[in-house]
C-alpha cells in the first residue's frame, strides 16, 4: 500500500528561513566585533614626549605623509618673548631682523611680531612648519624650551607602526589615550 505524500519534519522553506536568520545574526555579531576592535584600536594615539625628544630632525623626513604630521608648537606661558630668540634666529645672527640670512626656520614658518620694547611674540604657521626641530633645538639648548614638537592629530594617520617612532633615537614616541592626545609642556625644561 502506498502511504501517499507526507509533510517532512523540516521543510525546505523553513531551512532557508532559519539559514537566513542565522546569517543575519552572524553578520551582526561580526559587525559588532569589528566595531569593537576598531574602537579598541583607536583608544590610543601616537605622541611625542617633549622630555625625551632629542631634536634629531627625523620627524621632518620619516613621516609617511609628504609633509610631516609633526609640528612645532609654542607654549606661550613659558616663552620669554625674547628679542634675541634662539629658536627664531640663527646662532650668532647677522642682525636681529626677519631677513632670510638671520632666520633659523628653513620654511619661514615662525611669525615674529613686536609686542613692546624689548619683547616679541613668536607664532608657528603649521601649514609651513615641517617639524625639522631646528627652532626646538635652539630654544631648548639656549632658551627656556617653550618651542617643542607634537604630532598634530588633524594630520596624523595614526599608523599602527609609526614610521618616525621606529627610527626615533630618543624613544620619545609613545601611545597616549585618545582622550588626552597631547603631551603639553607646562614648565621650562
Amino acid at each position: 500500500m502506498n502511504p501517499g505524500p507526507t509533510t517532512p519534519a523540516f521543510s525546505r522553506r523553513q531551512f532557508l528561513r532559519d539559514g537566513l536568520r542565522l546569517s543575519a545574526v552572524a553578520g551582526a555579531a561580526g559587525l559588532a566585533g569589528a566595531m569593537a576592535g576598531r574602537t579598541q584600536a583607536q583608544t590610543t594615539v601616537w605622541q611625542i614626549d617633549p622630555a625625551k625628544c632629542v631634536r634629531c630632525g627625523n620627524c621632518a623626513t620619516k613621516c609617511v605623509l609628504e609633509q610631516s604630521a609633526v609640528k612645532c608648537v609654542h607654549a606661550f606661558d613659558i616663552c620669554g618673548y625674547c628679542q634675541l630668540c634662539t629658536g627664531y634666529f640663527e646662532p650668532e645672527p647677522n642682525e636681529l631682523t626677519t631677513a632670510a640670512e638671520n632666520q633659523q626656520c628653513p620654511t619661514a614658518a615662525i611669525k615674529r611680531t613686536f609686542v613692546e620694547d624689548p619683547y616679541y611674540e613668536y607664532e608657528i604657521d603649521e601649514n609651513l612648519c615641517i617639524g625639522c626641530a631646528k627652532c626646538v633645538e635652539g630654544c631648548t639648548r639656549f632658551g627656556n624650551g617653550s618651542l617643542y614638537l607634537q604630532i598634530r592629530h588633524d594630520r596624523c594617520l595614526n599608523c599602527n607602526e609609526c614610521a618616525i617612532a621606529r627610527t626615533c633615537p630618543g624613544d620619545a614616541f609613545r601611545r597616549v589615550p585618545v582622550t588626552h592626545p597631547y603631551l603639553l609642556k607646562t614648565d621650562t625644561h
Binding site: 647677522n94 631677513a99 632670510a100 640670512e101 628653513p106 620654511t107 619661514a108
Partner: peptide, 14 residues
C-alpha cells in the same frame, strides 16, 4: 651681496 644671494636662494627653495 652674500645676503642678497641667501635671500634669493631661500625664496627659490621655499
Amino acid at each position: 651681496k652674500i645676503k642678497e644671494r641667501i635671500r634669493e636662494l631661500d625664496l627659490k627653495f621655499r
